[in-house]
Each structure stands twice: as structure tokens, then as C-alpha cells.
């Protein structure tokens, strides 16, 4: 029974991974790509790891996959934050259809 639920979790995770990668190809600039890819791929991979834990049970790979979920949830938003900040500081503009950019206004005021 638990293996069937695990298979369902793995299938949901695969669908979210695929949507995240389509977003990585379709969206127009760095920040939008970063949003779609980080959210979808992080939750998709965590769902795959949780499905692996449900299939194999409390054995050594199951415990390791639970640890790996904690590592991923803690580290992937931090790396997305670092990429967004350094991209904005190195001068990459937002997409032309963007509405507002308070960060550039404030940095203009400082310098």
C-alpha cells in the first residue's frame, strides 16, 4: 500500500520537474526563469525523494533521502537568492514588460 502512495508521489514530482524545465525555456528573463525553475524543481525533487522513502521504507536509503529533502529545502532558496542578487548587481536589466523596479531606483539614490 505504501509503495503505491510512493509511486503517486514520484509521478507528481516528475510532472512538476517537467513544468519547471518548460518554464526555464519559455519565460523571458533571468528573474522569471529563476522563479519558475526554483519553485517547481525544488518541490518536484523533494516529492520524488519522499516517494523513494515511502517505497523503500525505514532502511538506509530511505533515511538518507529524508536527510536529502532537508538539505534541498534549506539550500536551494539560498542559491536562488544569491543568483538573483548578483545578476541585478552585475547590471542585467529586467524584461521590457516589467512594471516597476524599486531596487534600481534605490541603488541610483545611494550612488
Amino acid at each position: 500500500m505504501s509503495s503505491v502512495i510512493g509511486i503517486v508521489f514520484i509521478a507528481v514530482g516528475l510532472a512538476f520537474d517537467l513544468f519547471g524545465c518548460i518554464g526555464l525555456v519559455r519565460l523571458p528573463d533571468v528573474y522569471n526563469r529563476l522563479q519558475a525553475a526554483t519553485k517547481c524543481v525544488t518541490l518536484g525533487t523533494c516529492s520524488i525523494l519522499f516517494g523513494t522513502f515511502l517505497v523503500v521504507g525505514f532502511t538506509s536509503p530511505g533515511i538518507k533521502s529524508l536527510l536529502c529533502i532537508i538539505f534541498l529545502v534549506l539550500t536551494s532558496p539560498v542559491s536562488a537568492h544569491a543568483i538573483a542578487r548578483s545578476a541585478h548587481r552585475s547590471g542585467i536589466k529586467l524584461w521590457d514588460g516589467s512594471v516597476v523596479d524599486r531596487y534600481a531606483e534605490d541603488k541610483e539614490g545611494e550612488i
Binding site: 514530482g13 520537474d17 519547471g20 524545465c21 526555464l24 525553475a37 526554483t38 524543481v41 525544488t42 518536484g44 525533487t45 520524488i48 525523494l49 536529502c68 534541498l72 536551494s76 542559491s79 536562488a80 543568483i83
Partner: peptide, 10 residues
């Protein structure tokens, strides 16, 4: 490259 690294874990 970051996204590719996360997907290899899966």
C-alpha cells in the same frame, strides 16, 4: 546549471 544539479539528485 543549478537546476540541472537539483534534477540529478532526483
Amino acid at each position: 546549471i543549478d537546476i540541472l544539479g537539483i534534477m540529478v539528485v532526483g
